[in-house]
């Protein structure tokens, strides 16, 4: 493969808060080639959604970022405001968690799908935008009459499809899906996953799929990266990571999700006591050691770095 669609190097993101700086992402590096898909998994608060928003520079004012993000060959943090707006949605688009508030309640679904095409002038006219939005609805499996529906008139699954259609509006090279199946029924989750997998097969779309649900990822992602406390603690080919998990945290996550979207296991992964650390107050050494069943004395002093744990498989644990 040639130039990667996305190249992230040493990305660190620190939020500004009243009680001091909060390091949400602490040095993340990965590449994503055209047509590839990467699954990012971890508990809530591990920094995965911050990472997703950072990929289009959607972080609140006052957030400090360091490192580099190259998106389609352009240095994201060096772009002018106008250049940044031009990159958003045309190069990379985000499918937000749509069951809640990602759609504007007072605009029809169709209007919201047409908006990016008109802004980026990927269509010549309003009529062309209508034609294209109808095609997009067809592609994501929505009847054309729902273009005129308001978000509250749609079901959770339909809203998620609208968000996917909206993300595809300007034919982006990169699709970032941030928990797109959370809060959906089991059946609907499976349908949405199937749709995303199908879209990937049809085009050379690159995908970053973010979730707390590891089992979902083996279905849509070629490679997996597990995040804990703002860092990637294990990465590699999906099956390898899922079946030969090396990091104790990945093992606990993998054991926690026997089926797709089991809502009960989401909050209390089996075999994993305690809560994830708050980003503002991380424990010394390996941030996972207070919850780790295999923790040793040395884990309390030095934070381990990623090391080779198999074919293209790396993990950040002293036991590797």
């Amino acid at each position: 493969m040639n130039r990667p669609v996305l190249s992230v190097k040493d990305l660190a993101i620190t939020y500004h808060s009243a009680s001091g700086p909060v390091p949400a992402v602490r040095g993340v590096t990965f590449d994503l080639a055209a047509g590839d898909s990467l699954g990012l998994a971890g508990e809530s608060g591990c920094g995965k959604s911050t990472l997703a928003n950072a990929l289009l520079r959607l972080l609140p004012d006052g957030t400090i970022t360091s490192g580099q993000v190259m998106i389609d060959g352009r240095d994201l943090f060096a772009l002018s405001p106008g250049g940044l707006r031009a990159v958003r949605w045309t190069t990379g688009a985000i499918v937000f968690q749509g069951a809640l508030h990602a759609l504007n309640p007072v605009q029809t679904a169709g209007k919201q799908v047409r908006e990016p095409m008109l802004i980026h002038q990927t269509v010549g006219s309003e009529d062309e935008a209508r034609v294209r939005s109808r095609q997009l609805f067809e592609r994501v499996g929505l009847p054309a009459n729902q273009l005129d529906a308001y978000p509250h008139q749609l079901s959770g699954g339909q809203r998620q499809r609208v968000l996917i259609a909206m993300a595809l509006a300007c034919d982006p090279r990169l699709l970032i899906a941030d928990e797109p199946t959370t809060a959906l029924d089991l059946m609907v989750q499976a349908q949405v996953l199937a749709l995303i997998a199908e879209l990937r097969r049809e085009s050379s779309l690159s995908l970053i799929f973010i979730t707390h649900d590891l089992s979902v990822l083996t279905y849509v992602a070629d490679r997996l990266a597990i995040m804990y406390a703002g860092k990637i603690v294990e990465s590699g080919p999906s099956l390898s990571v899922f079946e030969n998990a090396t990091h104790p945290y990945t093992r606990a996550l993998a054991a926690a999700f026997p089926t797709i979207g089991d809502q009960t296991s989401r909050l209390a992964p089996s075999g994993l006591a305690g809560d994830p650390p708050t980003p503002g107050a991380l424990p010394a050494g390996c941030p996972f050691h207070p919850r780790c069943p295999l923790a040793e004395d040395r884990c309390q002093t030095a934070e381990p770095v990623l090391r080779k744990a198999g074919q293209a498989h790396r993990a950040a644990c002293v036991l590797v």
Binding site: L58, R85, A86, V87, W89, A93, E115, I119
Partner: peptide, 8 residues
Amino acid sequence: TVAKAKGL
């Protein structure tokens, strides 16, 4: 955030 992400 979605609107901002769209490049508005």
